[in-house]
Design a protein around this nucleic acid. Sequence first.
DNA 1: GTGAGTGCAAACGATTTGCACGGTG
DNA 2: CACCGTGCAAATCGTTTGCACTCAC
Lengths: 145, 145
Amino acid sequence: MVWRMSTADRNWEERLRESGLRVTRPRVTVLALLHELAGHHTAEDINTTLVDRDVSLTRGTVYNVLDDLVQAGLVMRADRGPGTAIYELAETWHHHFVCRECAAVIDVDCVADERPCLPADLPGAQVDEAQIIFRGVCADCLASK
Amino acid sequence: MVWRMSTADRNWEERLRESGLRVTRPRVTVLALLHELAGHHTAEDINTTLVDRDVSLTRGTVYNVLDDLVQAGLVMRADRGPGTAIYELAETWHHHFVCRECAAVIDVDCVADERPCLPADLPGAQVDEAQIIFRGVCADCLASK
DNA sequence: GTGAGTGCAAACGATTTGCACGGTG
DNA sequence: CACCGTGCAAATCGTTTGCACTCAC
């Protein structure tokens, strides 16, 4: 498939440049896809979706790109257990609730600026972000018991 | 090495029983070690330490045991990125600050009961735990720049 | 005695890496 | 045109699993 930059992609192009990253096809593709899918997704999700659309990037490239984007602050990564990180656009960032039973991940909106608790015991450190993972049992799993 | 239960281990024996787990050598060993090391450690840390002391449990067993203890609520696991979870005794549980530069993990004491933000958008779910990971740059890395 | 837990080794799956090529700035 | 980013495949690493054996209850 030939890749042509759409008008919407201009947006991402700009964002990449602002972040000091080069504008490349894989990066724009991943950003656009994350925007379109609008939620949290694993690297594998992203890769599969791209393969389905014949825009297959290498799995390795997907990981590299996601990593670059996370470094640049355009994308957030949440680690929710051994072996699977989820990614989402920084602008739609929220915290997560993970069900202990079915492993479902539910978004939890939180006031981003409201720092959950002051890390007073971190003298001299620069805290950029606080990521919260709630654990418990989701409504569905509670119901089926 | 012959394993004999020490007086101190009686403590763990009791804790295991209370949690409904059978009292076995690997479980007591891991609990005692986590207590002795008093901090957060990876499964590999634990395995290596045990091997050094000729009390080698299988790597697989260490993972199994840690998992059982987490299920039982005696141990807490924190996921801090791809490929490495850290474990610590539930009684010394705290949150973590992860340095973006050197990957160091620093403990952050937080009032455990003070729920960081109310997950009001989780109707019907039962929230057991809130785990917070702060990210940023630690004092040392800031200094060396 | 019976089933849960262990030990071992092999399987697995997510992520990383090395190297040659191509495209961006 | 220099270098960063990509594609590809193989390597790595944390973690899981299957099976036979042992031990706690």
